[in-house]
Amino acid sequence: MEFLASGVQIFESTLRVSTPLLFAALGGLLSERSGVVNIALEGMMLIGGFGAAAVALSTQSPVAGAFGAIFCGALFAILYGLFVIELKADQIVAGTAFNMLAAGVTPFLMKVFYDSSTSTPSLPLELRFQQGPVWISWVCLGLVWAWLKYTPSGLWVRIAGEHPEALDSAGIRVKRVRWISVILSGCLAGLGGASLSIFLASSFSRNMTAGRGFMALAALIFGKWKPVPTAIACLLFGFFDALQIRLQGVVLWGSEPVPVQFIQVLPYLVTVLVLAGVVGQSKAPRSLGVPFQAN
């Protein structure tokens, strides 16, 4: 019975901790399917998380906080798009820089607004989301899936990442498609950050994402750049996370506590193995990372 209860608990917390991952991974999926590498997910999440906490604090409304996250994420994504789509900066270099920027800007703003560079003031329980983000993240999954599969613009996104010249010669502006994908990517990643700061925790704190943006990226690759498998990967990684939290300090065998480090690195290890073709094959969109130059 106790076993069952802890099973339910783990299931519940799996759903909860995989929410930010799912948002961010969906964001990454849109951007990468359109041909823009997005290792700036981490930074987008940070900015979104901060925006959510700040807006929720000042408006006393978590919903407004969520919109704040979307807005901040989009703003950050627009800057990112400016560099990688228009100015043709290397997408990996720019992504790294944007992660640094977010890691620097968030404590900077916290210091300015709240005179603390470590965390924002705590939100009372009623100003945090209870379950909403979990549901919304799965709705987003459905929307992204249907959009890519059934609509013209979804088809354009997919072809922008595979053969942008084909899209261009069909009279559709590749850059515009990529812009929209990247901005949506920022919105979703921003929501991912929000579900950290005003759903799973009660405030935004310094470097709160702790690599979740990269884990989302890993889930995206593990999910072969497809929405549903990516969501499953997020659940799996969320499960590892939930398990790891639960096993912290627990002695299962012998006298030493379980070395949770091994569970922590599992998502990353699995991703390396998947990419190496040891566990299935994962193929990136063909034109991923190649800036498009209209003639």
Binding site: P152, L155, E165, L167, S169, A170, G171
Partner: peptide, 26 residues
Amino acid sequence: GMVHQHFMLSAPHTALDNILLGVETS
């Protein structure tokens, strides 16, 4: 219309999707 020397076709997509790209009907 132009047929380019290097075909403007996206390999993992169907013939149909490639043809109606940009002039989709609903």
